[in-house]
Design a protein around this nucleic acid. Structure first.
Lengths: 116, 116
DNA sequence: CAAAGACATAGACACACGTAAATATTTACA
DNA sequence: TGTAAATATTTACGTGTGTCTATGTCTTTG
């Protein structure tokens, strides 16, 4: 067991931004999650996986949608995975990533939640 | 009038991430908004302003909450302002920043919106 | 008009980040 | 067993980012 929370775990701990000021440690836990999303390529990857049927997509499909090298896509997927936004599963030669929609919803609640 | 959208304007244009894949230009419009939020200090600033009474706060109050130089806080406020997340108003010697809660809610809808 | 206070801007620096090329690893199949 | 395909890792490099110090601008007040 780890005392270190993943960004996705950290985001579930806090009331909405507009309710009360975030503490320093809360902010430091949440920022990495936003950072993981704050890149055009990763936003598109996240959106492609989340909107794909079954909420999952094969890397082989994702690579072709970008004019970027395969290692670059692999790198971005790793960032999203380590932030806790994507789950990873290997099936045969292929790797499938699955969106953690609960994480997205927790993040949305933090950002857009009403003050009261 | 400008043909260039602010990040806050860009975020209002798109269905939720999980509904359909974001286009390249949509993603490039939205990423800067997330980038503006994806810093612990700016997250706390945004939260402090949004949760403050009246949805606004004076820079003088914000500076004291951090062990950072005044120009650094000023820089972060500028980033949030230019992203469209904070409005800026000078009253006498003091400057007040006001949270654009609509922008936060649009962003939350984009991130956490249901697929259907 | 001069001085002081509130905030912004400019410049500089260390570090992080996005990308690509080269290489490694894993799996399937002939 | 060996070869090809899918994906990850390593390394390197240019660019961006967060921070500070120094300085500028604006407003109030003596």
């Amino acid at each position: 067991m780890s005392l270190e929370l993943t960004p996705v775990e950290a985001v579930a701990c806090c009331p909405p931004l507009a309710r009360e000021p975030l503490s320093e440690s809360e902010a430091e836990g949440i920022a990495p999650l936003l950072k993981a999303l704050a890149d055009p390529v990763r936003l598109r990857l996240m959106s492609m996986v989340a909107s794909h049927e079954g909420g999952e997509a094969c890397v082989c499909d994702l690579n072709d949608a970008f004019e970027l090298s395969q290692p670059t896509i692999s790198h971005h997927l790793k960032v999203l995975h380590e932030a806790g936004l994507l789950d990873r599963e290997k099936r045969g030669v292929w790797v499938y990533y699955r969106a953690r929609t609960g994480a997205l919803q927790n993040l949305a609640a933090l950002i857009g939640g009403q003050a009261q």
